[in-house]
Design a protein around this nucleic acid. Structure first.
Lengths: 356, 356
DNA sequence: ACTTGTCATGTTAGCGCTACCATTACTGCC
DNA sequence: GGCAGTAATGGTAGCGCTAACATGACAAGT
């Protein structure tokens, strides 16, 4: 790893005791751009160019440099590069929690898209035990990322202000807020609720119930659903609310709780597929036919939805498309291109399968 | 955001044309340590100390500095700090894919543990479309992370060599390899296979089958299982292999394929809970009683396992503990503490529920 | 009083890279 | 031949921060 330079050895300002007073700063011992430059017999900046924009370097020089890089095993220090160029090559993705969330596909799409653009993703979770928003924002902004993607995050006014003040491109996702910080790609949760209400009503269901997470967006879907159902003349709308993140278990308990309250339920709208799956499971465990006696509707259309038995009727969201669009927004902004309309409604679709 | 300093304004080396020749480098326009220092009437290093090690700064000075920080909205530039101190405060986590993987809990535990230690996680996926190992390693090592956690990754000899050469602490997880790169926390997949074989045999099953992913570790479990079953006198062992990552769907198809081959199967050992769930689902869809006619065993003990119907018998792995231990290894190494034994066998346990 | 030690702060010199010109050689064109 | 234009490369000066020492003030020890 330490390179065996020929005898034209490297000593310039590191000359043994220029003034004998101060100990020279130690450095990392890694191969640097300068080492490569010396080995290739060019200046540092030429090596830099050979690596970033090979097209503007003469072919022979390029070959010599590439050889030197290979021989030394040189890996550019991106921190130094980032500091000098004021471009970190880092993008922050903030999610409430990574485990078992609907946002995974979005995060994956982000990682992939940014990897292609030469950026790495740094991951922040707002839902972990010792969470302090202030600390998270400092940790993120302190890295001077080229962009920040907020996924399913509710943020305080101060938080919004600080992000805005940082001047870093921000994309909020998975929701359509009236006052985006900067850019936004999502869909209307209230419309999901209304459309699902129409869909189920049209199918003839008249005794709907809800099992929902207590998070903000689930609440939006729920209230859209309730309002439309009321408008359609449905008086009763029993609901069971569970803390996010939701699990299959919560769904089972949800149906149990619902049935303990009211016998007369013909369809359950759940705020996630996991919840819906739980409701289906509990129904089956109790010998209740799905959708015969109780129909079930989910949200998210996760990978398993079409394959559970009965196949889950749900709301499809294209999480990968959200991630791709968010990445596009940020890369456009980085390259200085015009991003056009800063708000993208990615929409959703109701997927009618067997469970409702 | 731009701070309104009083009239004792900031101008030192940025003096209008020191020599009038070269344009001054533009900078980011962000508030810097120096701005804060001037506002507080101290030197830059004192501000640095006030932020990193407040205990060694006089209380009054500290208060003045904190006030200045608050007034300017200063956020330290961690790239610059990292470059100067040779400590990036970044840890890289490499996974094959983030979507729907057993490693999620490990990643979550890592994020949490490192957040407490003041490090951020940078995420790398080796399983994405345009994957090139070389590029990934450059992208990671180029950030000079304080540690690298490899999760469920099979790496080439060159890759191993380059990681080793980088001198960065590396923790491999979710497996026990005979030749770890550096540190390791995992368990023996072959032993899982053997123990499951013993477990199922003891329960009286004599016609086992396998539905397994084609990844390396799943293969290890499978061969442990097969060897032990053979040793126990089981001659036939039909298997169906599906590409990773596995899904519920694959499980359904797996059982279908198995039943098309051989009718005589009394238990199916799956390489993941998702697969097992699929097998259970397919059985139910076909009216086959679980575990009455066919028993099912999973691997992973994901959150849903206890709550599906029938509750899934599976192998429990403490993914969070793996993450925590990996984080511990790396923070110990960073702090220069002795990590002790560099290999930790975290073990596993068989959880007997209803499906087998 | 003088040494020794501790505390709080400052000075200097980089960390490894790239932006911003400057320079040199060469090409084409009137 | 002279001049602009282009292509390839180099020199210098930072980016914003911290390591390593240096300094000055004061308390304690003999």
């Amino acid at each position: 790893m330490r390179l065996a330079v020929t005898s034209t050895t490297v000593t310039s300002k590191l000359e043994p005791a220029k003034k004998a007073s101060r100990a020279a700063r130690r450095g990392t011992g890694d191969t640097t751009l300068n080492d490569v430059a010396k080995l290739a017999g060019v200046s540092a900046i030429t090596v830099s160019r050979a690596l970033k924009t090979p097209s503007i370097v003469a072919p022979e020089t390029l070959a010599r440099i590439q050889d030197a890089v290979a021989r030394t095993g040189y890996v550019p220090n991106l921190m130094a590069g980032g500091l000098a160029s004021n471009r970190s090559g880092l993008v922050a993705a903030l999610v409430p929690t990574i485990a078992g969330s609907v946002f995974l596909e979005t995060v994956q799409a982000l990682t992939d898209a940014f990897a292609d653009a030469g950026c790495q993703l740094i991951l922040g979770q707002s839902g972990y035990s010792g969470f302090r928003e202030d600390a998270l924002i400092n940790a993120i902004v302190g890295r001077r990322p080229d962009g920040i993607v907020l996924t399913g995050i509710m943020h305080s006014p101060q938080g919004r202000k600080r992000l805005l003040a940082s001047g870093i491109p921000v994309v909020e996702t998975w929701d359509l807020t009236p006052t985006p910080i900067d850019m936004l790609v999502g869909f209307s949760h209230e419309k999901v609720g209304r459309d699902v209400a129409d869909f189920l009503y049209a199918k003839g269901y008249r005794r709907p119930a809800i099992v929902s997470a207590d998070d903000y967006r689930a609440g939006l879907r729920r209230s859209g659903f309730e309002q439309r159902m009321q408008a359609l003349g449905v008086a009763q709308l029993p609901a069971h609310v569970v803390p996010a993140p939701t699990s299959l278990r919560d769904g089972r308990e949800g149906l149990a709780a619902l049935l303990a309250k009211t016998a007369a339920v013909d369809v359950v709208f759940c705020s996630s597929d996991a919840l819906a799956h739980g409701v289906v499971t509990e129904a089956q465990a109790r010998g209740i036919a799905v959708p015969g006696e109780i129909a079930v509707m989910g949200f998210g259309d996760l990978a398993f939805a079409p394959y559970i038995h009965p196949a889950l009727t749900t709301v499809h969201i294209d999480g990968r498309a959200i991630g791709r669009q968010a990445a596009q927004f940020i890369t456009d902004r980085i390259e200085g291109r015009d991003v056009g309309e800063r708000v993208r409604d990615i929409g959703f679709s109701i997927v009618s399968r067997q469970s409702a």
